[in-house]
Design a protein around this nucleic acid. Structure first.
Length: 778
DNA sequence: ATTTTACAAATTTTT
DNA sequence: TTTGTAAAAT
């Protein structure tokens, strides 16, 4: 243990050994926060003999939890670290809620609705109530419901805040409360909780049952909360309740990195910690181990523009490093090519592998140009975010069947699959069931189960079809009850439901990909079952599988075992990560800071913190790029450079501003260059580069994913490094996955050609040559 | 009951 | 530009 403490600086060491009573660790970017948290837990266990069962450590991603558990394991040994309560707020409290579910009237196998389920349900309710969907927008309603729940305002309590009703009347949605209330009732009837419920219901549980509260207070004698600046009110109250007995609470965060206020995170939680716990000790980790002096200073000079922050002084002993390059491009394609060229330069001249570069952007829409440029240059890349594996339709379809097998009342799962694959049960029939359910205050399933009593309500034959569907689901439920492992049940359901055969029919490349995704899911269930069977107290049941994956997201499943690739992600997703070379693209007004957020000073400050997060991801070199013009929603826009560029002190920057045209004359910095609208009209024709790129477009990497063990990340095919194979009928080929095959026919030419190939093992497939990993044989 | 066509919307999202 | 949803047509 001593040798570990020796690896820490003074502030870090103090934070580690201060174990009794409340404390707050303000951890500047790159200041070794994770190290402190890890060692603190290890110190508690090793030095103070605290039982890991008594330590609760809350993180914001499963990945962070897993990593920390691993790192603690390295210090204290795995068998002990396994017993720590470590995870996200949602996963830890979902676990507790399952154990205590009966107390609040839920089944312990309750479903967790994801945002899509929630939005669909809201949309249905709006429709049922005959409200105008253009005014009652599901997205807006979902956001409002979420924000109310995160502030612990239930439909009942809504009445107590007249300003809420006023707001709803202002926004032309006076019936909001009814929608909210119905939404909650329907979730309850379905035995379902949405993400926010996991926190809200935990609060209800702890507030209603003092014995339950006491039990968990006693269990969690030491509580640690990471990323405290991004906790919302609901989380804050849970932590406060649990910690109130022993007050051994340690929160870690950096107010300068709070970037989730738009999702209900309350920065005051961290700003007011000292008020909540007057005895709290504050530690500041101010030495940055990550970045060069230049980057640290630049980031400091930027964040100094924010009014509302805790005082701290981040510094580093690292080299001063290179200045930040600010580069202007004509348009987003040139910007992307510039980035691609720099990445190649670094690889060639600094021996940096591709994994050391990251391209960060404000919005996902910016990926397209970047992808094209990287692909053209043959640079391997990985896109984080976008449509996650578990959000794909085919995956959600099978999961819906699995969910129904466990909880038949799950309305969203029911609606999703009752007519998929098609069983001739249409919208009218479903509407009638829903109507009956609402009328009789029952769940949809209860109506469907007893459909024979309502026979005359339905069209001839419809009741029979429903009864057949019900019988199917009951069979699945019986398989669950008989205790079969998850993989066997899933396999049977995939076939028996008709889902697998349905997908197998589709021979388009997209269809094939969907089928493969389904196979991937099946494989992952098998993996899960294997792991559970090998584990000491493993549970290979379907219930356990579903509860495990309900809270998993893409960023949790990232791995780095593959060949090094450039990372492409939004700045939000980059939080907590670090890279030697960071490119922040789209540094333009309206894009970053984003115009949609700029309604208040607080919003601008959050955008600035976002930029701060982006800058501080970098270890060695930062590039900031912006464009003179950019296509956005099909229109060419001319934006000024981001105000944030002005906010970094000039001495940390080096401007690289090529002259494109007479427009920029006479302004050496080209800042604030009048972007007057009376410029000569831009040529309608796209540049050659843009034209060439168009041929390369398509679904891109999206379907070219080689997904081993549930790796939902999009991975590029470096097209520049691989010539598209031109095939002729009767040629023999070998495919990475399908093995040997014989070309039957070819349609089209070049990368857009489609070849039908009969594989020895996998049968006949039609492949798009652009994506297919085939080689000619002989 | 399914497929086609037309039209609107479009930031960030650890759960 | 793309993407998704709703009305219209089969």
């Amino acid at each position: 243990m001593e040798h570990i403490l020796g690896k820490l600086n003074l502030a870090q060491r103090e934070a580690v050994v201060h174990t009794k009573g409340p404390c707050m660790i303000i951890a500047g970017a790159g200041s070794g926060k994770t190290r402190v948290l890890t060692y603190r837990i290890a110190y508690l266990m090793e030095k103070e003999g605290v039982d890991p069962f008594n330590i609760l450590s809350l993180t914001f991603t499963n990945k962070a939890a897993r990593e920390m558990k691993h790192r603690v394991g390295v210090v204290v040994g795995n068998s002990e670290s396994q017993n720590l309560w470590m995870g996200t707020f949602h996963s830890v409290f979902a676990r507790i809620l399952r154990a205590e579910a009966s107390k609040i009237g839920y089944p312990s196998n309750f479903t967790i609705y994801d945002s899509e389920d929630a939005k669909k349900l809201i949309g249905n309710i709006v429709k049922e109530k005959g409200l105008d969907k253009d005014i009652y927008k599901t997205k807006t309603l979902a956001g409002r419901i979420s924000s109310l729940k995160n502030n612990l305002i239930t439909p009942k309590m809504y009445e107590r805040f007249p300003e809420l009703r006023e707001q709803d009347e202002q926004s032309q949605t006076p019936k909001f409360k009814e929608v909210y209330q119905t939404y909650c009732e329907r979730c309850f009837k379905s035995g379902a909780m949405d993400f926010d419920d996991l926190l809200l219901k935990t609060n209800e549980l702890l507030a209603t049952y003092p014995t339950v509260l006491a039990k968990y207070q006693d269990r969690f004698r030491y509580i640690m909360v990471d990323e405290y600046q991004d906790t919302n009110h609901s989380q804050y109250i849970i932590v406060k309740a649990l910690a109130s007995r022993f007050e051994n609470i340690c929160v870690v965060g950096d107010d300068a990195q709070s970037i989730y206020a738009f999702r209900g995170a309350n920065i005051r939680n961290i700003l007011n910690f000292q008020k909540d716990y007057p005895d709290a000790k504050t530690f500041k980790l101010e030495q940055n181990y990550r970045s060069t002096k230049n980057i640290v200073s630049a980031a400091n000079s930027l964040i100094a523009n924010n009014k509302n922050q805790l005082e701290k002084d981040v510094w580093t002993e690292n080299d001063s490093g290179e200045k930040i390059i600010v580069h202007k491009s004509l348009n987003e394609n040139q910007e992307a090519f510039y980035v691609a060229e720099r990445i190649i330069d670094f690889k060639n001249n600094q021996d940096a592998n591709f994994g050391q570069s990251a391209v960060l952007y404000r919005t996902n829409a910016q990926t397209r140009a970047l992808e094209e440029a990287l692909r053209k240059k043959g640079i391997p890349y990985r896109i984080y975010g976008g449509l996650s594996f578990y959000q794909r339709k085919e995956i959600k379809d099978l999961l819906a069947y699995l969910r129904l097998a466990i909880n038949q009342k799950d309305e969203e799962a029911f609606r999703r699959v009752i007519n998929y694959p098609a069983r001739g049960i249409g919208a009218t029939t479903i509407d009638k069931i829903v109507h009956l359910a609402n009328e009789r205050d029952q769940s949809i399933w209860e109506i469907a189960e007893n459909i024979q009593f309502f026979g005359n309500t339905f069209n001839r034959g419809a009741d029979i079809k429903i009864a057949n569907f019900v019988r199917k689901i009951e069979n699945y439920a019986n398989m669950v009850k008989s205790g079969l492992p998850a993989d066997e049940i899933a396999e049977e359901i995939a076939k028996n439901s008709g889902l697998m055969p349905e997908l197998a029919k589709d021979k388009t490349p997209e269809g094939v990909s969907r089928y493969e995704n389904l196979q991937e899911l099946m494989a992952s269930i098998k993996d899960f079952v294997e792991n559970q069977k090998n584990a000491e107290e493993g549970d290979p049941s379907l219930e356990n599988f579903l509860s495990e994956i309900a809270l998993i997201t893409d960023s949790d499943t990232q791995t780095d075992e593959d060949e090094p690739a450039v990372s492409l992600m939004t700045i939000h997703q980059a939080k907590g990560l670090e890279f030697p070379f960071v490119y922040i693209v789209g540094m333009e007004e309206n894009l970053f800071p984003n115009i949609m957020t700029l309604t208040s000073r607080a919003d601008l400050e959050e955008e600035r913190r976002l930029f701060y997060v982006a800058l501080t991801r970098a270890e060695k070199q930062v590039y900031l790029t912006y464009c003179q013009t950019r296509y956005r929603w099909g229109k060419l826009n001319a934006n000024e450079p981001s105000r944030f560029l002005d906010e970094i002190e000039d001495k940390y920057l080096q401007f690289e501003v090529p002259e494109f045209s007479p427009f920029d004359q006479g302004n050496p910095r080209l800042f604030g260059a009048p972007n007057s609208l009376d410029k000569p009209p831009l040529p309608k024709k796209k540049s050659m580069a843009a034209k060439n790129n168009e041929e390369q477009q398509g679904t891109g990497g999206a379907y070219a994913v080689n997904r081993k063990n549930l790796r939902p990340l999009t991975k590029s095919e470096p097209e520049g490094t691989k010539d598209t194979v031109t095939l002729k009928p009767n040629e023999r080929v070998i495919h990475e996955k399908f093995g040997r095959g014989l070309v039957i026919s070819v349609e089209g030419t070049g990368p857009n050609a489609k070849a039908t190939i009969r594989f020895e093992k996998a049968g006949e497939k039609t492949l798009l040559m652009k994506f297919a990993r085939v080689r000619k044989l002989g």
